[in-house]
């Protein structure tokens, strides 16, 4: 079983400011972290590997510093890491990103399962996972909270929905994105961390992946950010004050006024 996890290094959005003029993130001086949702993807891969055997490779596309993010995942017991880094990759949208990652996965192959976090906290598109599946021409599911192998060649996933969960079964190779319910990411191990410090991380560029400059980065992107803005609030909001009991009382009255059935 070869599992590839795609991760992204993102600015620590707990500590970022938005530039009021351009409406974009001020990235300068902001620490980079592994996209928090991707830790669940790493954990999911390690859980599958622990149970069924095999190896886990973590993959990221990013600047040379993104190697740090890869080493952090190696400290959790990930087997290998590959960095996709090339000036030509800069400015990639979700199409160009997923194409680049897909090519790398094909090159790493054969790969049985690709796992991504549900979305990245900087772009929040949640498109790269499904995009990868499209480029790889593989079945996929999103928001999985549990993964299980059936007969060694099928993946069964519990997909979280607003109403509960869907049970989805599909043949491998496949792509999934996972949510936090998959389980808390494990703590780093000392032996893994020592190995991670020295482990060689191959760096691949566009040429290594057989991609032309016009297929990657800004040039290979079909979408363009025209404007970034805060959406207007969706509806009126009312803040309740007072003790918990008083607030419950007020809430109940408001719900009754709104003629909510059953009240």
């Amino acid at each position: 079983m070869h599992i590839v996890v795609c991760i992204k290094q993102v600015p620590d959005t707990k500590n970022v400011r938005i530039d009021p003029d351009t409406c974009t993130l001020v990235r300068q001086g902001v620490e980079s972290i592994v996209n928090p949702h991707d830790w669940y993807a790493v954990e999911a891969a390690l859980l599958v590997r622990d149970q069924y055997g095999g190896k886990v490779t973590v993959l990221t596309m990013g600047p040379p510093q993104a190697e740090e993010a890869l080493r952090e995942t190696l400290a959790l017991g990930v087997d290998e890491a590959v960095l996709l880094s090339d000036r030509a990759f800069a400015g990639a949208d979700t199409w160009a990103t997923s194409l680049t990652l897909a090519r790398a996965i094909t090159k790493l192959g054969p790969v049985d399962l690709v796992i991504c976090g549900k979305q990245a906290i900087d772009g929040d598109t949640a498109q790269v996972g499904p995009g990868l599946a499209a480029h790889l021409d593989q079945p996929y599911t999103t928001y999985a909270r549990r993964l299980e192998l059936v007969d060694g060649c099928q993946l069964r996933a519990e997909r979280v929905t607003d109403a509960g969960y869907e049970l989805i079964q599909m043949p491998l190779p496949a792509v999934v994105t996972v949510v936090r319910e998959i389980g808390d990411p494990r703590m780093p191990g000392l032996k893994h961390k020592m190995r991670a410090r020295k482990q060689e991380i191959p760096v691949l560029g566009a040429a290594d992946l057989g991609l032309k400059p016009e297929e990657v980065g800004l040039q290979g992107s079909y979408t363009q950010v025209v404007r970034v803005f805060s959406p207007p609030p969706r509806c009126d909001r009312k803040m309740l004050n007072g003790s918990v009991e008083e607030q419950v009382e007020q809430l109940l009255n408001l719900l009754k006024e709104a003629k909510i059935p059953g009240l």
Partner: peptide, 19 residues
């Protein structure tokens, strides 16, 4: 040493997040 530093870091992370 680097190893001693790692012991501190990992234990501190566990202490903070799990303890």
């Amino acid at each position: 040493t680097e190893e001693q530093q790692m012991i501190k870091e990992i234990t501190a992370k566990i202490a903070k997040e799990k303890v």
